[in-house]
């Protein structure tokens, strides 16, 4: 299955997100990951969306999105040529005696411990999906109480020469 990364520049106005998201589901696609935020221009927001599909007519969706009056520009990111990142908060069930093991794992992944309780510890990590999947795998052995993710954001890499 192909996973398309769309970076969509839209008008920064209420209702715009629902137009974009509604169109995607209406045309029969799922959204795997979604993030929205303001940009360098206060009138514009950027929506980053990952859409998995087996359809060969994916271009139809980007054309339909382009047709929305509130959409300025759509860029489909090429995975090889884009920086893709996500932030994840993981609450791990861990008693005091094993806490250091978990902190060590977090350090290896350059993740931060952001909260510690009597029976759990919360780790903040950023990275691409492979790194975050690796961290999640190792922490699962201790018991994951809760995970929350921001959704992926992406930016095209600068030219090297």
């Amino acid at each position: 299955m192909d996973r398309h990364i769309l970076s969509i520049l839209v008008e920064n106005q209420s209702g715009v997100l629902s137009r974009v998201v509604g169109l995607v589901s209406r045309r029969g696609y799922n959204i795997e990951s979604l993030s929205v935020g303001p940009t360098e221009d206060e009138n514009l927001s950027r929506i980053t969306m990952i859409v998995p599909t087996e359809s060969e007519s994916f271009e139809q969706l980007t054309k339909q999105l382009n047709k929305l009056v509130c959409v300025y520009k759509i860029v489909e990111m090429d995975k090889g040529d884009a920086i893709v990142r996500e932030l994840v908060l993981i609450k791990v069930a861990v008693a005091a005696e094993k806490r250091n093991e978990v902190i060590e794992i977090a350090n290896v992944f350059r993740a931060k411990v952001v909260d510690v309780g009597r029976t759990s510890i919360t780790i903040e990590a950023t990275g691409d999906e492979h790194k975050l999947a690796g961290l999640e795998n190792l922490l699962r052995a201790y018991g994951i109480k809760e995970i929350t993710r921001t959704g992926k954001i992406a930016m095209k890499r600068s030219a090297q020469n």
């Binding site: 209420s14 209702g15 629902s18 137009r19 509604g22 209406r26 929305l68 009056v69 509130c70």
Partner: peptide
Amino acid sequence: GITTPIVKHSYL
């Protein structure tokens, strides 16, 4: 909201 899928554009 009701008409979003069937308009070219709309304003509130």
